[in-house]
């Protein structure tokens, strides 16, 4: 990890010194054990706070739309990006949030991020106060215990099924060797759920979303959710009720959001991780990703030349998704 930190800092410092970018978005150590967090670097002397670890779970592309004004002024922004971050950045570029040359992508191949909550569960009732990371394990310490855990057993759900861990595009790269895992596919997750009976699926879905408190962390953590006015906030017309005691509105919120992400979600899992009520939202969105792949052979953000699936029409397009009787 230290090697990667060093390399990231080198690149960042160079880009800032050479005036290639004004801002670099990366990760720094968080205030909690098992937490790294987004950070913003503007001066070469600040690059020392940049780090890399298996805790860099946030998809940093989420910040790009916040800088629209700067982007309109032709400023350039550097982003430290794993596979999924680069896919979201490509989406932003395709959707004209930024021009390709305005985003200086510092790619870091990723071996999957750790799920903090899984690790905490593993050591309950222990309270973790410290953690150290090695190549393929992580050691957590706390009030009277110390445990070393294999990283691969504690990956985020969406990282387990990620098949694009290497940055898709980049301007600078931290050149470490990683293997794209084989035989994994978003479909795995979706298939398992889809193999259930419809009633069972509906029950599982409604039970999950009934816990929703409408904090919209899922939306705000999502790099593809950047509408100026989100449909949940519209008052004229009002698409959706505003309460939490109407189950229908909670369900509708997730269903509509899911549809808005069709062919735009990169399965980074940010929504699920952000959710304070542990609702597995990404499962729902993943279904639309798999449909895009299955019916249109499209994967979001893997081809910078490509057009988003819903932005193009071809006579050979599959009609199945629309007409299939269920």
């Amino acid at each position: 990890m230290e090697k990667i930190d060093k390399k990231i800092r080198e690149i960042a410092s160079k880009l800032l010194k050479e005036g290639k970018v004004k801002l670099i978005i990366g990760f720094e150590k968080g205030t909690l054990p098992l937490k790294a967090r987004p950070t913003f670097v503007r001066k070469p002397e600040e690059v020392e706070k940049l780090i890399w670890s298996s805790l860099c779970e946030n998809n940093l592309a989420v910040y790009i739309p916040f800088y629209r004004k700067q982007l309109d002024n032709a400023e350039k922004i550097g982003v430290i990006a794993k596979g999924c971050d680069t896919r979201s950045l490509i989406l932003h570029i395709q959707e004209n949030i930024a021009k390709r040359e305005q985003i200086v992508i510092i790619g870091v191949p990723c071996e999957g991020m750790l799920d903090r909550k899984k690790i905490e569960r593993e050591v309950t009732p222990g309270i973790i106060t410290e953690s150290t990371e090695n190549d393929d394990s992580i050691t957590v310490k706390g009030n009277g215990f110390e445990k070393t855990l294999k990283k691969k057993d504690f990956l985020c759900e969406d990282c387990i099924i990620c098949s694009h861990r290497k940055p898709i595009v980049y301007d600078e790269i931290v050149d470490i060797e990683i293997k794209e895992p084989e035989g994994v596919d978003v479909l795995n997750k979706v298939n398992e759920f889809e193999s259930k009976e419809p009633e069972e699926r509906w029950k599982a879905f409604t039970e999950e979303v009934s816990r929703c408190i409408r904090c919209y962390a899922c939306r705000n953590a999502c790099p593809a959710c950047y509408c100026n006015e989100c449909f949940v906030d519209c008052s004229r017309p009002q698409w959706l009720g505003t309460t939490v005691d109407s189950e229908t509105d909670l369900q509708l919120f997730q269903i509509i959001r899911t549809f808005h992400l069709a062919g735009r979600c990169v399965n980074c899992g940010s929504c699920s991780r952000a959710c304070p009520m542990d609702i597995d939202i990404s499962l729902l969105v993943s279904k639309l990703s798999t449909d895009a792949k299955q019916y249109f052979g499209y994967e979001t953000g893997v081809d910078i030349e490509g057009k988003p699936v819903l932005n193009k029409y071809s006579e050979d397009d599959s009609n199945e998704g629309f007409f299939e009787e269920r």
Binding site: R37, P38, T39, F40, V62, Y63, I213, R214, C215, Y216, A217, R219, N220, A221, A274, P276
Partner: peptide
Amino acid sequence: RCLGCGVCTY
């Protein structure tokens, strides 16, 4: 770094 969600307040 704030995302402007409702987690902290809710």
